[in-house]
Computed example of a mutant assay.
Amino acid sequence: MTFSTSDAEQFDRYVLRERNGDTVGVLAETDDGRIPLVEQYRIPTHRWTLEIPAGHAKDASERPLEVAVRKLREEAGFEAKEFTQFSRFINTPSFSTQHTALFHATGLTAVARDVIGPETPRSAVRLFTPDEAYRMVINGTIVDAKTIIALMRLRCGMEEER
């Protein structure tokens, strides 16, 4: 895209418009206080990551809460009694229109996981205490931004803003 500045100079900028809108991330907590993180291989960075379940809508009609419910089931193998959105942020404001909405899910019940796609056909779900997850953020094991934001918010206290 070409843009003009107030002094009439023009410049080009690539703007990424995410297919089917925003993404969603789910910070889920089991009844015993553990957090499911999905261990999966990420092709662009050539590394394994630990991430909260996340993704985008299948089509323009799927709402963020519906995406959160679906991704928690598909990627982590859980259903939740309660979902609360606690954050929404711009992923890369310098070149993308994409936002991520973060949900906190509680009252979990284990269910069969659905196939999550070709990128990581053998992903694993690992459960961590909040302290373990926080330490992995601090020591650089967890490098995914949405997961870091969600875990730091949990560390600061989810209940403070309700």
Rank of each mutant, 00 (worst) to 15 (best):
F3W: 13
S4Q: 09
T5C: 14
T5L: 07
S6R: 05
D7Q: 06
E9N: 13
E9S: 14
Q10S: 14
D12N: 15
D12G: 13
Y14D: 03
Y14P: 00
L16W: 11
R17L: 08
R17K: 15
E18P: 05
E18T: 06
R19M: 09
R19N: 12
N20G: 03
D22F: 10
D22Y: 04
D22M: 14
V24T: 08
V24S: 02
G25V: 07
G25S: 15
L27R: 05
A28N: 02
R34G: 02
I35V: 14
E39V: 09
I43A: 12
I43F: 14
P44V: 04
T45A: 15
H46Y: 04
H46C: 07
W48H: 14
E51M: 02
I52N: 01
H56W: 06
D59S: 11
D59V: 04
S61P: 00
E66F: 08
V67D: 08
V67K: 00
V67G: 05
V69S: 09
V69P: 01
V69L: 07
R70V: 01
K71L: 13
K71S: 08
K71V: 15
R73K: 15
E74T: 13
E74F: 03
E75F: 07
E75N: 10
G77M: 02
G77P: 07
F78E: 08
A80C: 14
A80Q: 11
K81L: 13
E82R: 14
T84N: 11
Q85K: 15
F86Q: 14
F86M: 13
R88K: 15
R88N: 13
I90V: 14
S94R: 13
F95R: 09
Q98R: 12
Q98K: 09
T100Y: 07
A101K: 08
A101T: 15
F103S: 07
F103I: 11
A105W: 03
L108E: 00
L108F: 03
T109M: 08
T109F: 10
A112E: 15
G117N: 03
P118N: 04
P118R: 08
E119D: 14
E119M: 09
T120E: 01
P121R: 02
P121F: 07
P121D: 04
R122S: 08
R122K: 06
S123V: 06
S123H: 15
S123T: 06
V125M: 08
V125Q: 04
R126E: 05
R126N: 10
L127T: 00
F128S: 00
F128C: 04
T129D: 11
E132L: 09
A133E: 02
A133M: 05
V137D: 01
I138C: 10
I138R: 15
N139V: 10
N139G: 03
G140D: 10
T141K: 13
T141M: 09
I142N: 09
D144K: 11
A145V: 14
A145I: 14
A145M: 12
A145Y: 11
A145G: 13
K146D: 01
T147Y: 04
I148E: 06
I148P: 04
A150T: 05
M152S: 00
R153L: 02
R153N: 06
R153W: 00
R153A: 04
R153V: 01
R153F: 07
R153I: 08
L154I: 01
R155V: 03
C156F: 10
C156Y: 10
G157S: 00
G157N: 00
M158T: 03
E159G: 02
E160I: 10
E161W: 01
R162H: 09
